[in-house]
Structures are given as C-alpha cells and as structure tokens.
C-alpha cells in the first residue's frame, strides 16, 4: 500500500498514544470497530471546565491508515469544544491523509470514535 507522507508521519511518530482514567467523570471513552474486522480504535477525551477538549488519547489495532486516522483526529479535536469536535467529518480526515478509497472506512471509524467518546462523556455527566 502506497501511503502519503501525512499517513507515514503519524504512523511513525503518532502523538496522543495512551490512555486516560475512565473512572474520571471528565473523561469520555469509546471503543469502535471489531477485532474480527481488522480494526479497533479506543479513543478518550478529557473535557475541561470550559467545555473544551483538553486531552485526547487513542490506542489502535489496525492498518497504517487506521492508526494515522485516529492519531490525526486526536490532534484535531484537541482544544475544541464538543460541537466543533463533532463537526469534524471522516471526509476531512480521508482527504487530509489522501487515503485510497479502500481505506475510507478507517476515517469513518475515527469519526465514529470521536462522537461516541463525546456521547460517553455526556452520558456520564447527565443529571
């Protein structure tokens, strides 16, 4: 698979690899994908008092495109409020990374990971 420089940079030196404490009520966690399908993304966000994402972490099982998509989206959501973060679409990720069509599902998974992590944070903090 011939990947762009953007993919290779994030595969070789990904920022934001790691985990946050899921017991912290300011942390939202998502796990999307399935091992049997060949990709799983675990994505976590910490939301500060101002409602902005102050930290984002990921761990990914998958190909280079899956790793790069999850790394990129954690970079992008950092410092954004939840609505802005939800506004990032898989097409933006796919385009920035120049993903080939067969790898488009990796960017879909990254978008889904962000929206589920936000939902998890909101569910935790409801009522």
């Amino acid at each position: 698979m011939e990947y762009s420089k953007e993919v290779m940079d994030r595969y070789n030196n990904p920022k934001n690899v790691g985990s946050l404490d899921d017991n912290d009520k300011n942390v939202g966690t998502s796990i999307v994908g399935a091992p049997s399908c060949g990709d799983v993304i675990k994505l976590q966000i910490r939301v500060d008092e101002g409602g902005k994402i102050s930290e984002a972490r990921f761990k990914t099982f998958g190909c280079g495109a899956a790793i790069a998509s999850s790394a990129l989206i954690t970079e992008w959501i950092h410092g954004k409020d939840l609505d802005e973060a939800r506004g990032i679409k898989n097409q933006d990720v796919a385009e920035y990374l120049s993903l080939p069509p067969v790898k488009a599902h990796c960017s879909v998974l990254a978008e889904e990971a962000v929206s589920k992590a936000i939902k998890n944070y909101q569910d935790k903090n409801r009522g």
Binding site: Y3, M8, Y11, C37, D39, G62, C63, A65, I67, V102
Partner: peptide, 25 residues
Amino acid sequence: EGESIMLGMPEVCVSSGSACTSDSL
C-alpha cells in the same frame, strides 16, 4: 494487524493475510 507490521519495516519484503493488504475487505 499485519499491514501495520509491514509498514514499520518497509525494507523487509514479506506479505500478510490481512484484508488490509488486499483490495477486498
């Protein structure tokens, strides 16, 4: 995943049974 291993050692030419190295899923 297999393709991600190959990507980390591009100078070593091997192959993978992963879907990610083929055009099918």
